[in-house]
Nucleic acid binder design. Structure first.
Length: 301
DNA sequence: ACTATTTCCTGGATGC
DNA sequence: TGCATCCAGGAAATAG
């Protein structure tokens, strides 16, 4: 279940392996529910594009792509029209033909069980493989997702909006404002990607434990002091998890096939009935908005 | 405008 | 052993 720290780890690993590669060909599977954009559009954007960088936005992995396309002056191509007017004007008035870099993005959401693997072409194609990109390095980048909660899409450079604010970049004032007037349980608010992007079930539970707040507490009833603690806890938990390569739950591994180790630091997540590490009270599990939520009934109020 | 609930999906765990 | 059932959970869709 990749959340922000896992996606960050994966994106860093991918950046090391595929930055600068040209995508020489693209294969997309038939399961169209994994595609947010039409298959033809995804293939057209990926094919013959160069991977300029790989980064994380919330729980999304963003591949920044550049395509070199020859634009001939007299014929007003669609590409030329899409460029800024001044640039297009310069183009048509001077050079008869010129290579123009157009920018776009390939956006991957791993959902629950999605993974991106860089491997040799002869590696057996795993079950539930939904996309294969052949790279100029001779390797392949494959998207595998058994449960198919993952999503692939493409966007032009200006398009992609991942929603809320990055939790590692937000300041205390804006953090506090996110919860003002919200009657929803704080747990639900933390999971709401339109507020903060990247926090998932594990890190929401762990942050609430560290700040002593019960997951069911209505967001608007939390004091300034408690929110300040939560603000620190969220950043702390995410940073520690990134440093340990994320949490390996079920079959999560990063781009190098390495497991993360933050699961060993979990204080409440998946520890139902086990003693609280602070006060020995058994950890409780309740369901909030359809999600299992773990907390210590004594330490969290 | 918010908030709560349902739905999607497969494989691993559990129970009889 | 075999088969059915349940559960995990992010986010979109739907309902209130």
């Amino acid at each position: 279940m990749p959340e922000l720290p896992e996606v960050e780890t994966i994106a860093r690993g991918l950046a090391k392996r595929v930055t600068g590669d040209l995508i020489e060909s693209v294969w997309l599977g038939q399961k169209k529910e994994t595609l947010k954009s039409p298959a033809s559009e995804i293939a057209a954007v990926l094919d013959q594009s160069r991977i300029a960088s790989v980064r994380r936005m919330g729980k999304h992995i963003v591949f920044d792509l550049e395509q070199d396309r020859v634009v001939r002056a007299p014929a007003k191509s669609r590409l030329a029209q899409r460029m800024t007017k001044s640039r297009a004007a310069r183009q048509t008035s001077t050079a008869p033909a010129e290579a123009v870099a157009t920018k776009s993005q390939w956006i991957v959401h791993l959902g629950m069980t999605g993974s991106l693997r860089v491997c040799e072409p002869q590696t057996e194609v795993a079950k539930h493989t939904h996309a294969i990109l052949r790279l100029s390095s001779g390797r392949e980048l494959r998207f595998v997702d058994p449960r198919r909660f993952g999503r692939l899409s493409v966007a032009s450079a200006a398009d992609f909006d991942a929603g809320g604010i990055e939790p590692l970049e937000i300041d205390l004032d804006r953090f506090t404002n996110l919860f003002r007037g919200r009657k929803t349980p704080i747990k639900s608010a933390l999971l709401n990607q339109k507020l903060l992007r990247g926090v998932g079930n594990i890190y929401a539970d762990e942050s609430l434990f560290r700040s002593g707040i019960r997951p069911r507490r209505r967001a608007s009833t939390i004091t300034r002091e408690q929110l300040a603690k939560l603000f620190v806890a969220v950043k702390e938990v995410l940073n520690e998890a990134i440093a340990l390569g994320g949490s390996s739950i079920s079959d999560y591994v990063d781009a190098d096939g390495e497991e993360g180790f933050f699961q060993l630091q979990h204080r409440v997540y998946a520890r139902e009935a086990e003693p609280c590490l602070v006060c020995k009270t058994p950890i409780k599990r309740v369901v909030i908005a359809g999600r299992s939520s773990h907390y210590c009934p004594k330490c969290q109020r």
